[in-house]
Simulated assay, not measured.
Amino acid sequence: MNMVKHGFDIVDKATFRSGMSRFGSTVNVVTTRYGGKRYGFTASAVCSVSDTPATLLVCINRANSCFHAFENARHFCVNTLMPGHEDISNVFAGKPPTADRFMLGDWREGLTGTPVLVNASVSFECELDKAVDEATHRILFGRVIDVRENEDRATLLYCMRRYLKG
């Protein structure tokens, strides 16, 4: 079904997804703690918003199995993965599904109790400032309260539906 808006046809889902696969991006695992449990998902839709105050945004699909935790949690952490973390990315993306996504990697509690990947390229611990729903997703705006950088600055990238080493 094509939708018409302002006289232009909106592209179909397959065409849009194919075009978006050409956007190279960092691979991130976004984590939180809610109800005494750890939750996380793999995200490429992460970007800076401002440096004054330090703010970033993350997009989460509202159909995601851990959405309820992010909907109710006050803090989250964006852990940018490094080459060699492909298995961590896949597990948090639900490939394969697993009860404990935190079985891979060395996780510690951050300032707010959110899970922080010890050897991430960089981790941004955030306090939720606001959330906005758009189509199938929720955009989480987080004020950055802590940054942890790894001396090895390599970052895992994803483009054209495959991992690249950056």
Rank of each mutant, 00 (worst) to 15 (best):
N90S: 07
L140V: 07
C126A: 06
I145N: 09
F41L: 13
R74Y: 00
S121C: 14
T55V: 15
E134Y: 13
S48K: 08
R22Q: 11
T155H: 02
I88T: 03
A14Q: 13
A63Q: 12
F8H: 11
N2L: 12
R162Y: 00
M3F: 08
T55Y: 07
T155M: 10
V147I: 15
S89N: 02
S121H: 05
T52Y: 03
T42L: 01
D51E: 14
G7I: 06
E71Q: 12
Y158C: 05
R22A: 12
H137K: 04
I145T: 14
D133C: 04
R17N: 10
T26S: 14
T112N: 14
T42H: 03
R22W: 01
T15H: 06
V27R: 02
T112Y: 00
I139H: 01
R74N: 08
R143Q: 14
T98L: 11
L117K: 04
G35P: 03
T15V: 13
T15A: 11
A63D: 08
S21T: 08
R101H: 12
L140R: 05
M1G: 15
A135L: 10
S89W: 00
D129C: 09
L104Y: 06
A154C: 11
F67D: 06
G94T: 10
G40M: 07
T52P: 00
G7K: 01
C77H: 01
M82L: 07
G35I: 09
A99E: 15
G36P: 14
A14H: 11
P53N: 14
D129W: 06
E71F: 11
V91I: 13
H137A: 07
F8R: 14
Y158H: 11
A45V: 09
V132E: 02
E149N: 12
L128H: 00
E125P: 04
S50C: 10
H68E: 15
V122H: 00
A73W: 00
D133N: 15
D133R: 13
V147M: 14
S25L: 03
F70Q: 08
S21W: 05
G166P: 08
V144H: 05
K130Y: 01
C59Y: 05
L157D: 01
C77N: 10
M20T: 13
I88N: 02
N119V: 10
A14F: 13
L57E: 02
L57R: 05
F16W: 12
V78H: 06
E134W: 09
G7Y: 02
F76G: 04
A54C: 11
H85C: 04
T42N: 03
V49L: 11
